[in-house]
Simulated assay, not measured.
Amino acid sequence: MSEHESIIDIKDISFTYEGQDSFALQNVSLTVTKGEWLAVVGHNGSGKSTLARILLGLQFPNSGTVMVDNKVLTEETIWDIRRVVGMVFQNPDNQFVGSTVQDDVAFGLENNGILHDDMVLRVEDALNRVHMSDFLNQEPHHLSGGQKQRVAIAGIIALSPKVIILDEATSMLDPLGREEVLKTVKDLKDEQGLTVISITHDLEEAAKADRVIVMNKGQFYKEGTPSEIFQLEEELISLGLDIPFPIKMANALRDRGILVPKNFLTDIELVNELWTLHYNK
């Protein structure tokens, strides 16, 4: 597999919701590479969630083309594409259909006609991968927010997709639950070569991505690595986005005369730099 081989190609798509005059998406083009973590960020109404819905075939563009795993998205190919792309939504409670954790993870497999013995193995493997195998017979509503999202992820990965879309999947979680879910996704990406698309307004989540695309008013605005995008601090703030805490802290330290040499994307990186500065005095 070429390191630059694409899994998704979007060419010049536009979309307008019925009854609205303005575009939800206008002339958007992008390519997603196999095995990368792409973050799509923007304020509410920027078009990022509409883009996610189109990738899953929940909406179809008014113009332009969407190609997923070498198939053009149409009403005829939608189920083939949904075998390639799985989505984890914002509220995990809206995704549960089973009375127990294992029943819920098995639901999608049953709908796809997977044989029982294979299904049992895939459910156990998926729950083990998200560190939820001890909760096999637990009722989902008894789980914490982070645990619920990990079960939701297990339900997706049991279907063996090539792409996982996180549609604001951590926005309702506390910091610990958010870290649990993002670590789970990163581990799965590294182990299985999954492609991850994170649709989010949280730039601390976007900091974990390989590449960031900024959306604004339904259009492609900026693209770059997290470090490159976070250098646009004032622009991001003007778009209604909040820069990550480590960058805010580094700026505050500079204002107080502590010369932090560059911006850091994680708390740990910043703390390590401060320790280094302290011991090199």
Rank of each mutant, 00 (worst) to 15 (best):
F23Q: 00
Q90N: 10
S99A: 14
S46E: 01
I81T: 07
T31V: 13
V84H: 02
E36H: 10
L55H: 03
V41I: 06
T16P: 00
R53Q: 14
E18C: 03
R83L: 08
E5L: 12
G113V: 11
L30P: 05
L73R: 02
D93N: 13
S22I: 09
Q95N: 07
T50S: 08
N94D: 15
V32I: 15
V105S: 09
K71A: 09
T16S: 12
D21C: 00
A106N: 07
S46L: 00
L55Q: 02
R83T: 07
H116C: 04
T65V: 11
T31M: 08
K71D: 02
A39F: 07
I54F: 01
Q26C: 04
D103V: 08
L30K: 03
D125S: 14
V84E: 04
V72G: 00
I114V: 15
S14A: 06
D103L: 06
R53M: 11
D125Y: 12
I54S: 01
V28Q: 05
L109A: 13
V84C: 06
N70D: 14
G19R: 04
L51I: 04
K11D: 10
Q20R: 14
V66L: 08
R129H: 12
F15G: 01
N94R: 12
E5N: 11
L25K: 04
E75S: 11
V72H: 03
E18D: 12
L115S: 15
N27G: 05
S14Q: 02
K71T: 10
V97I: 14
Q102T: 13
Q20G: 00
L109Y: 09
N91Q: 09
R122W: 11
T100S: 14
E36K: 14
L127V: 07
D80F: 01
T31F: 01
F89M: 09
N128C: 10
Y17R: 02
T33M: 10
S99H: 13
N44M: 04
F89H: 03
G42M: 05
R82K: 04
T31D: 09
T100P: 06
D118Y: 12
E75I: 07
R129L: 14
I8G: 04
V88K: 06
D80S: 12
H116G: 07
L51Q: 05
E76Y: 07
F107P: 08
M67L: 08
T77Y: 06
D118R: 15
D80R: 02
M67K: 12
G57R: 02
T74E: 06
E110R: 13
E110I: 11
G47A: 02
V66E: 08
L121W: 14
D117M: 14
G57C: 05
N70F: 06
Q59R: 13
V72I: 15
T16V: 15
M87E: 04
L127P: 05
I54K: 00
D93K: 10
I81F: 03
F89P: 00
Q102P: 01
I10D: 05
S22R: 11
V101P: 08
N91W: 02
V66W: 05
E124D: 14
F15H: 10
K11V: 10
G86D: 05
D104F: 10
R82H: 01
V85K: 02
L115Q: 15
R129W: 08
I13K: 05
V123E: 09
D103C: 03
